[in-house]
Design a protein around this nucleic acid. Sequence first.
DNA 1: AAACATTTGTCCGTATGTATT
DNA 2: AAATACATACGGACAAATGTT
Lengths: 242, 242
Amino acid sequence: MHTVALWQQIYETLTREIGSGHYPRGQKLPTEAALARRFDVNRHTIRRALASLQEDGLIHVRQGAGAFVSQAQIDYCLGKKTRFSQNLSETGLDVNRNILRLETLPASKKEAGLLALHEGDRVHVLEAVSIIDGAPFSYSSSIFPAKPMPDLQQSLRTNISVTAALMENGVMDYSRAWTKLTAKRALGPVARVLHITDGAPVLRTVSLNVDAQGTPIEYGRSWFHADRAQLVVAGDAYDSVS
Amino acid sequence: MHTVALWQQIYETLTREIGSGHYPRGQKLPTEAALARRFDVNRHTIRRALASLQEDGLIHVRQGAGAFVSQAQIDYCLGKKTRFSQNLSETGLDVNRNILRLETLPASKKEAGLLALHEGDRVHVLEAVSIIDGAPFSYSSSIFPAKPMPDLQQSLRTNISVTAALMENGVMDYSRAWTKLTAKRALGPVARVLHITDGAPVLRTVSLNVDAQGTPIEYGRSWFHADRAQLVVAGDAYDSVS
DNA sequence: AAACATTTGTCCGTATGTATT
DNA sequence: AAATACATACGGACAAATGTT
């Protein structure tokens, strides 16, 4: 007869309980000793179950502190028609934005190259932190060519949505040319705005948006809170969303 | 008259020199003191230039050790038709693979759910490290349903390419249903196989491949060496590659 | 293992030119 | 025109991390 291992039963019970909200997100689980008493097993059996929970990313364990239920990761869908606000507000989350910097200035040689401009052409620079459910989710730094949309700065200030701001400036449609992703350690400023400790991992993306003619209209770099963000590339999303 | 700041000239010079291979990848730059002598400026001016190089990701600096030219990141393209070996061997890189584990066993409840099987149905488990140019690039753990491809284990052992192994077992075509990405700290085993220090950032992906009928044929989790890997999602790649 | 030299990180201060108010 | 703020550049001192002997 086949019996499920003890640790596995406990693992499944805890998975259910975490999923149902019995142990709220971010909160501490009972100590290993307490769980051992509850399930009437040895502490090592609990540890085996917790190890699996950790592999699944459901909890994270800090030596000396305890096991904590991980925050739910927010799925951020990447596709040709990636729109930040739309992407997230559709999920019913409370999305907000803090502008850290918004100005218009001449492009450096590097910036000009990225947007296919000439050095000295003016660009709008936007740095912002997106806040979801009251906590920092991502920090992003974008540049836009100023010539075709001289009044974008004002639009960005009044609209939370970049898409809406672009529409006010005549860009009715745009698409994501490419996105490059890698993992980095959060350094000084990024760690500060994301409210994470220096050196914690972040997901960094660099991306280019182009208009219907293929002209670059936004070059952006983003840093996502790794504990909160999960980027999703769905095969279908590219076709269906349009 | 407008003059370019000293530190900026130095920054551009070093950018050029690194780009042209004057300072080889992975190698140490001269010390700040030496660069200060070379450009005949104060050490702080050099530091300002190095800070910009670091922002660009061209170098990374280790206190006490020095500034090192970053390794060129390997672009790994994500798309519907993502094929690991193809993806990378086309770039002319030396791609290899070490199998850490390859066996066939009954699926746990969780694994069964992921592949749309029943608990206890047999699955092939493959854990492997990919080696590019002699150094670990990624570690991945995959499961395949055994029923439709009973001899896959042998094929995986003899073929470096998973695609080729699948073809030998009747899967002539498959596509990437979705990929989920996030950043993590490398923990024990992952850090060991990737040859990085514990806690260093890694890029983790979870993905599902399905056959032409939409049936799951591979569920995989991968950990990419963050210093070496850059995942690229190109809008066009989804359409053109087919 | 312990002492040492090297190298980067941080802080203090000073001076000057430039842009803004 | 004057006052103010900011970016740039230089000089020095010590702390912290690393590598070597």
